[in-house]
Design a protein around this nucleic acid. Structure first.
Lengths: 184, 184
DNA sequence: GTACTCTACCTCGGAGTCGATATATATTCT
DNA sequence: AGAATATATATCGACTCCGAGGTAGAGTAC
């Protein structure tokens, strides 16, 4: 998704892609060569991108990669209907968010944000005692677990606020569109 | 790490472990049977845990798992000297944090928190233009990328605050210990 | 009575990822 | 001259993990 998402903005070569993915997921983990190049090949075989050999600006020749219409369609399918783990795994969710603007329909964007919003709404209970009873944050012995729950909670609330404002804005825009269309 | 970390508190059976890991990493992803049971077996073969068959409270018989001294040692090694990805990957870091109290030495705990703190201190630049120039948050076209950077920044600042206060507290405690020792 | 659900364990195949290794070119440092 | 570093691409074996499937006991709904 990150490869096609970056290529949707402008053509890039593998090495550049690697650095951009590493920066985006930088706080997560850089992508390994052994992952990147086979994935590029797979996407090429699937017709999602084409390559043109160009002289390297500094050293060895580059393979400039360009996204195709099929690639754009594939990217939009992934964004429009993301697998559950892209909603629940923070790392994957942030990668998705970085490319969500490639879904051009505000309504579709709003639906994806709403899925994340719904997920964050679920009460999270992280720790339990011997008998399976939930332990509230203030009764935890470990200051690390206390901090973990506290940080987790405040972070969730912050993201929920942001999601709500974004969803409202997107729905307002989509609403205008619908009204304009139905107003014909 | 999560398996040994939970067993360090009290013995559990596989099914219970699965639910606890799912709750801890609940906002991430639940652990699959195909991951859990082979991992339990691997830890058993490595002498990190022992199992005792007990009648199931409701249905099939359970395998109650208990951590051994070797298992405790292994857990402490993982916590004391975590691989880089446990510092940089949020998901893994939070799992580590949930069990850091099993490192009983305040100095050692503090060193691990300091590694995370140092990592968070690095300026994060997520997006670049065609020419590789960094794009500041306020110049991004996508509201999702803007939100991503904004949330990321505020979250980092929050965690840094917490880390600083924890490190100070731990060092204060470790300092007392050293002073008492050297004062003999 | 029988279908469904929850508990509880286990295995196998496949997908994805990493890390090591290899190949080359150009620049910079010593 | 030689070494180190950065650019740039590619492959291979090993490892991890998931998902689908299987086994089984006990309770619950219809």
């Amino acid at each position: 998704m990150a490869i096609l998402g970056f290529l949707r903005d402008f053509p890039l070569h593998g090495y550049d892609l690697k650095n951009r993915v590493a920066a985006l997921a930088g706080h997560v983990r850089p992508i390994a060569d052994g992952t990147l190049y086979p994935t590029i090949k797979k996407l090429e075989d699937a017709g999602c991108l084409t390559r043109r050999t160009a002289p390297g600006s500094v050293a060895a020749p580059r393979h400039m990669l360009e996204i195709t219409q099929d690639g754009t369609d594939q990217l939009r399918r992934w964004l429009r209907n993301p697998e559950p783990v892209f909603i629940t795994d923070d790392n994957k969710w942030y990668v998705l968010l970085a490319f969500l603007h490639h879904l051009e329909n505000a309504r579709e964007q709003s639906i994806v944000l709403a899925r994340r919003r719904e997920f964050l709404d679920q009460p999270t209970q992280l720790f339990f005692d011997e008998h399976g009873r939930p332990i509230p944050a203030d009764q935890l012995d470990s200051p690390f677990r206390k901090g973990l729950m506290q940080i987790h909670r405040s972070f969730n609330l912050g993201e929920i606020d942001w999601l709500d404002s974004q969803i409202a804005e997107l729905d307002r825009r989509a609403g205008y569109t619908v009204r304009q269309r139905t107003g014909d």
